[in-house]
Structures are given as structure tokens and as C-alpha cells.
Write a protein that binds this DNA or RNA. Structure first.
Lengths: 227, 227
DNA sequence: GGGAAACTAAACCGTCCAGTTCAGTCACAC
DNA sequence: GTGTGACTGAACTGGACGGTTTAGTTTCCC
């Protein structure tokens, strides 16, 4: 029902009253449209699609509802575009470069930290949650999210392991699998406590233990001498 | 706002017209109440809280809306109780017993399969998704879910690793951490493609490769000779 | 200063939905 | 067979919300 923009025009003109051009373009510059997007982002990410009314969005944006509808065709479109933008907004991580004499376990630990920073900061988590929640209603979102969020990180990690193979620092038979492993070894245990709003008790392992454990595990499994 | 039952009475009497006893008790036997619960489960788990109306529930249960309200105080209570029941309804997994001469890597692989079967079958996944989605609105649910779903599995795995330590089959310094690691090594890569309704392309590692990889990784890391 | 376009504020429409009410039916117990 | 209580079916209330319209105000450019 709601199609999503797959490209973001960088600049735009203000809305025109009765052309159909207001639908999916040109909100990048206009300050009102930006205020609306910002408000929508805050509200939707926090409360979900159903729980937020367009009146709330307008109020929070400091704008009349008519203006909201002047810039965005419908609630669905606004939501979908907001999520899409939130997906691609993630700053792209930079992994440390490898040298032949790198301390591989230290580098792995560093990488685990980067994964935590990028996948477990509040906004990506909120996006993740909302994609999961509204996935059935907006089936295009998961693909956009995966392609812009986890996938680039997986690719970088895969490249990293390829490079480690090449330098003889590791022996990784399936680098793509290794990439997912390192992600989930930290994302899993640490994500649970962040995704469930209510704090889960039951003595979770400490954050640093999880990170060090993941690095150690990758190293132990893929160390050249181990295989 | 919606408090949740933390105990399930096994038997119940039919509703009483004007006492306040209908709220959180006694839906276990009454066939109408059961039909309502069943319908609620199917609908809510599939479509989420907001997208389902009480008329739908009544219709699907083959019951009048008045009867629904005779058994359940409100939509919130019905939803919360349904989720709570779905949480505790999970059949409890049985892990293979260890002997001193067990083939530990084979056992680990078996365990990985059990984890997949228990955490990634359709209903637990649906519950997981809905907890994530409605978590902000029902803050008591995540704890109930975690305590009845993942936590027992984590405990069993922790015990398993303790036993493996005792038998000298593995050397696991932090058994609780190891339990979470084995869970997430399979749950992570395999859960993504199931949680996102739209199939995510981008050549995911094959299921069996993920499972074998997890078992191998645990073994390589915690093998007695490795440390 | 004049005109056009963006914007506001508020009323308004239609729809949907949670929850209530009520007259009447059915089944069963005494 | 009569009373009791669960249940039905349908109408209804009250409120929320998406989306539109309109009358009037601001802003800015020429």
C-alpha cells in the first residue's frame, strides 16, 4: 500500500497546492517538512505507528495539521519515509585496517566494540524494533532496513575476514558466516537488555565480558594454528 | 496499566454477572473463555494489538462480544493474559545428558538443533515479535517473556556447561556466557530471516552451516586442550 | 504596495472501535 | 414447569482519529 522512496533528492521546492508532486519528494530542505520529519521520527520510533496520531505529529512539529498534509500524502507515507530515512542515516562504520603483524585478538576486540556502538545505539535499536513491529503492515521496510543497516556492516566484516585470511592472521573458511557470528556474539546478549524496555534482571554477563568473550571465541576458532 | 496474571488457576467457574472476579481468573476450563483465548491468540499474534478489534475476536471465537466482556475485563487484559499464557506454554526443552566419553562436538551440534527448534519455531517467534512491538505499551510482558522463554533455556545450557566442566569435556570459565553464546550463534543468523516477514535476500549462510559453525566454535573455544 | 504562496487554526466529515445495554433464547437444576 | 444464569444479537454511546476544507494571517519577492 505504501511505496517507499528509494532515492533521496537532496534539495526541494516548497509544496505546490494542487500538483501531485508533494508525495515522495523534496522534504530535504524545507524547514517545516524537516520539523515534521523530526517530530514523526521521535514519536513513531518511541511509540510505534498505531499509537501516534497525526495531531500529535503536527503539535510536536509546531505546525498545523494542514501543513503536515501539504507535505506528506498520508500517515503511512510519512511513516514509511521516516523509517526509510532512519535506515540510511546510520553513519557508516570504519573498521581498523589490518597489517601482517597486527595483534589480531586486540583488533577483534576493537571490532566488537565498533559493532556494539553501531548496532546497539538507541536509534538503530528503535528502528530495529519498529521494523519488527510494523513489518507485516509495511513489507518493504525490512528489506530497506537490512540493506542499509546490517548488510553493510556484514560486508565490511566479511571483507575484514577475507583480508585476515590473506594476511595469514586467521583461517576463516566461511567469511560471511564469521561476520554474522561476530555480530551476533555481541549483538545478542547485549541487545536483549536494550530491546526489552523493562530491564531484564537475572544477572546478565557484563558488557565487557561479552565483548572480550566474542573476540576470544572468534580468535580461538579461526586462529591459523587452531585449524 | 494492565497488570498480568502471574499464576494460572487450573480450573474455573463460569463468569458471575456482577462480582469483580472475572478479571484475571478462571478461564482455563470454560469452553467459551477458551475459544476466546484461542481466537485472541491467533489474531493478536498474527496482526498485533492495534490491528485487531474485539469484534473480530468475538466473531472468530464464535461468541458474542458481550460474552467476551463477560470473561475479560478489557482488550488490554485479554491481550496481556494471552501473551502471558503464550509465554509459559512453551514446551520445555530436554538437553542430552553428558557422559565422560561423550562426543562433545556432536552433542553441541545436537544442542544447537534443539535451540533452533525451541526458539525459532513459529509461535515463540510470533510471541517474541509481539513483545518487542508492544513492549512500550505493556512493560510487564518482557519480563514474563524472558523469565518463561529464554531464561529456562539459558539455565539448562548453563547447567550443561557446568556438567561438561565437571566431566572434563570442556573448560568453560563463564558458563552463563557460554550459554548465551551458543544460543545467539544460531538464533541470530537464523532468526533474522524468520523475524523479517519479507524474505531478506543477500545469500544468507545455509541453516546447517550456521548450526555446525556454532558447535565448532563453542568446541574450539572451550575445548580443554585449547585453554 | 501588491500579489502569490505557505501557513495557521479550527471546524468538520466519515469511519472505526471499545465498551454497554437490553430484550430475548437456551439449558439445566430442583 | 419454573427459576436461574450463561449466552446471543443487535443496537447504541462516546470518543478518537485520518483526512479535508475554509477563512484568514504571515512572509517574501517584485
Amino acid at each position: 500500500m505504501a511505496e517507499i522512496v528509494t532515492k533521496l533528492p537532496a534539495a526541494g521546492s516548497p509544496p505546490a497546492k494542487q500538483d501531485q508532486g508533494k508525495n515522495t519528494q523534496n522534504h530535504a530542505i524545507n524547514p517545516k517538512a524537516m520539523a515534521i520529519m523530526t517530530a514523526a521520527k521521535e514519536l513513531f520510533l518511541e511509540q510505534g505507528f498505531g499509537a501516534v496520531s497525526m495531531d500529535q505529529v503536527a503539535r510536536q512539529a509546531g505546525v498545523s495539521k494542514a501543513t503536515v498534509y501539504a507535505h506528506f500524502v498520508s500517515k503511512e507515507k510519512l511513516f514509511a519515509e521516516m523509517v526509510f530515512r532512519a535506515c540510511i542515516a546510520k553513519s557508516h562504520a570504519v573498521l581498523p585496517a589490518l597489517q601482517a603483524d597486527s595483534d589480531i585478538e586486540a583488533v577483534l576486540e576493537e571490532i566488537a566494540h565498533i559493532v556494539v556502538d553501531h548496532l546497539l545505539s538507541p536509534e538503530p535499536l528503535a528502528v530495529y524494533r519498529i521494523i519488527m513491529a510494523e513489518g507485516p503492515r509495511f513489507p518493504e521496510l525490512p528489506r530497506a532496513f537490512f540493506g542499509n543497516g546490517p548488510l553493510p556492516m556484514i560486508r565490511k566484516l566479511t571483507d575484514f575476514f577475507d583480508e585476515a585470511n590473506r594476511l595469514g592472521l586467521l583461517t576463516v573458511p566461511d567469511t560471511r558466516l564469521a561476520a554474522e557470528q561476530v555480530i551476533w556474539l555481541v549483538r545478542g546478549p547485549l541487545g536483549v537488555r536494550r530491546l526489552f524496555t523493562t530491564d531484564v534482571p537475572a544477572d546478565l554477563p557484563a558488557e565487557e565480558a561479552v565483548i572480550k568473550g566474542a573476540a576470544r571465541m572468534i580468535h580461538a576458532t579461526y586462529s591459523p594454528r587452531a585449524n
